[in-house]
Design a protein around this nucleic acid. Structure first.
Length: 521
RNA sequence: GGCCCCAUAGUCUAGUGGUUAGGACGUCACUCUUUCAAGGUGAAGGUACGGGUUCGAUCCCCGUUGGGGCUACCA
């Protein structure tokens, strides 16, 4: 145990409630926890390799599903959260079995990792609390819990009832009775927050919190505390929205004499308008980014940098933005987590994604692109053709889902404006470069004639031909290419002109060019 | 309302009791160029406000303002 940086195991957990999808905020919290645990696990491996020992349970990233029902938890949502975490590469050391075929089963020594299955243990603790006089069945009616000013009372008038009297009241109560934790009066509940420093609440503002409902179900703050304790969680790194839960959990740890974990509260992620992230800020679901065509490594890298930055005196590291997974694990330090809420800047995410897209090998790029290309693309002219077209877009795309909007004309003729129905041509562009362009008839017809003569339809050959035409006609390249580009693709944006011609092929080029030759003459 | 948290450019952030306050996205300009994107070069843009402490505060303290979280027999 003499590793200079090793200060004990890091057992952290991510504990989502399966009432929806994995949101970006949750994903980032999970990411921070995951990185920290991975780092600690690496250190432990080094120590073992040197012949050292690790006392007690080793470091781990624990996933616990907080499905203490409330009718809102669903299996589909659990599945969705699991899938999103896996997609992001955040595998857990202990938690639900990721295999869909074994849904509901857990892996790890302190399971089960579904909170709903842990009720027996929770009830045991309730019994202990009751018998030690640290908690009580509370027979107070809602009226009795309301002060003269109409506000809710925090402390129950029945907190000092004897256990016998409590049981007596319990028997008489029809719908059961809730159990409250008996809180100490006027005590400072403070902790040294890992990211925020000292935070303190007075127990007068907390009161005798309910830990078990009258129907016997456990309440969140209680279940979490028991589970964290049972799973030997050493550090609770969670969202800022849990700050006000912490004093309640502290009350439970202290009542039972359980050692407190170290708490750290990560700032929330907000929209660019600083409001809470919601649908109108674009995708808030991690899955949404997958569907958009963001690579997991790009989202991983982007999320890493909201609320965290490499700290230390290494200037080069301080300015570093691109992190591989391994680099992130090595560089992560919870002390580097900032305190203020970070805005989710989609443009920067797309910038990162573009970078990651371009770093892919052409084969990997096509593989990633595959789910986003329409089914018929490969059947239209074969896989080789589709691969060649897609390759042109590796330098251009920022999200994979844009491929169809960019490259459709390689697989389908644009519908001309003179035909019934919606046209694929940009009317303004057509007006400017073809119909309203006095040079257009000549450019289209003369080049069309030359294209008809071509024997070797290679990009290099086409370049010579087009360049020759420009030189002879005295027209600039742009003047010549733009009308043709519009005629062939419907608009003025496409990959390089020679590549465009070459890939489209002679037949298609002549066909689409022919329409306009006829139309303009 | 009560309790709690936060505050460096539009955004993510680095940093320091004395700095030309550093990097990145975005924006703008120029460049490259057959269009777009990418690339290259450059520019504009910041310490919320008011008081202290101090020889000196972006940094330390207090207040104001602004933003956020929580305020369930939800999680």
């Amino acid at each position: 145990m003499s590793h200079p940086e090793y200060t004990g195991p890091v057992r952290v957990r991510f504990a989502p409630s399966p009432t929806g999808y994995l949101h970006t905020g949750g994903a980032r919290t999970a990411l921070f926890n995951w990185l920290w645990a991975q780092q600690a696990r690496r250190r432990e491996e080094e120590i073992r390799a040197l012949g050292g020992d690790i006392d007690g349970p080793g470091s781990a990233f624990i996933l616990r599903i907080e499905d203490t029902d409330e009718n809102r938890s669903t299996e589909a949502s659990t599945r969705a959260i699991l899938d999103s975490l896996v997609w992001l590469g955040l595998n857990w050391d202990e938690g639900p079995d990721p295999d869909p075929a074994r849904f509901g089963e857990s892996i790890g020594p302190y399971g089960p990792y579904f909170q709903s299955m842990r009720a027996p243990m929770h009830h045991q603790v309730i019994q202990e609390l009751l018998h030690r006089g640290l908690a009580f069945y509370c027979p107070a009616t809602p009226e009795e819990m309301t002060g003269p000013d109409g506000k809710k009372l925090l402390f129950s008038p029945y907190r000092d009832l004897s256990l016998d009297e409590q049981m007596h009241r319990l028997e008489k109560a029809e719908g059961g009775l809730p159990v409250r934790l008996k809180a100490p009066r006027d005590v400072e509940l403070k902790w040294d927050d890992l990211v925020r420093g000292e935070i303190s609440f007075n127990s007068e503002g907390i009161g005798d919190i309910i830990i078990q409902k009258s129907n016997g179900n456990l309440l969140y703050n209680f279940a979490v505390t028991c589970d964290d304790r049972d799973m030997h969680v050493t550090h609770v790194l969670r969202g800022e929205d849990h700050i006000s839960n912490t004093p309640k959990q502290l009350l439970i740890y202290d009542a039972l004499g359980w050692p407190r974990p170290i708490f750290g509260h990560v700032p929330l992620i907000v929209g660019m308008d600083r409001a809470r992230l919601s649908k109108r800020h674009g995708a808030t679901r991690v899955e949404g980014y997958k569907e958009l065509g963001v690579l997991p490594q790009a989202l991983f890298n982007f999320l890493l940098l909201i609320g965290w930055a490499p700290s230390g005196n290494d200037a080069e590291l301080a300015n570093k933005e691109l992190f591989s997974v391994e680099e992130a694990i090595a560089a992560f330090n919870p002390r580097g987590i900032g305190k203020s809420a970070g805005a989710f800047n989609t443009e920067k995410l797309e910038y990162f994604n573009g970078l990651y897209l371009r770093s892919l090998s052409p084969e990997d790029f096509f593989r990633e692109l595959l789910p986003f290309i329409p089914d018929d693309w490969i059947s239209v002219r074969g896989e080789e053709y589709a691969v060649a077209v897609c390759a042109l877009y590796q330098e251009k795309l920022t999200v994979l889902s844009e491929i169809d909007a960019n490259a459709w004309y390689f697989f389908r003729d644009p519908s001309p404006p003179w035909e019934a129905g919606e046209t694929d041509y940009n009317i303004d562009t057509v007006e400017k470069l073809l119909i309203g362009n006095p040079e257009a008839p000549r450019i289209i017809s003369e080049l069309h004639a030359r294209f008809e003569q071509v024997k070797d339809w290679s990009a290099a050959n086409l370049e010579t031909l087009v360049d020759g035409f420009c030189a002879e006609s005295g027209l600039g390249k742009g003047k010549v290419m733009q009308p043709w580009r519009v005629a062939l693709t419907g608009d003025k944006v496409s990959p390089g002109f020679y590549e465009l011609l070459h890939l489209l092929g002679q037949e298609t080029t002549l066909r689409r060019g022919g329409w306009w030759k006829q139309r303009l003459s």
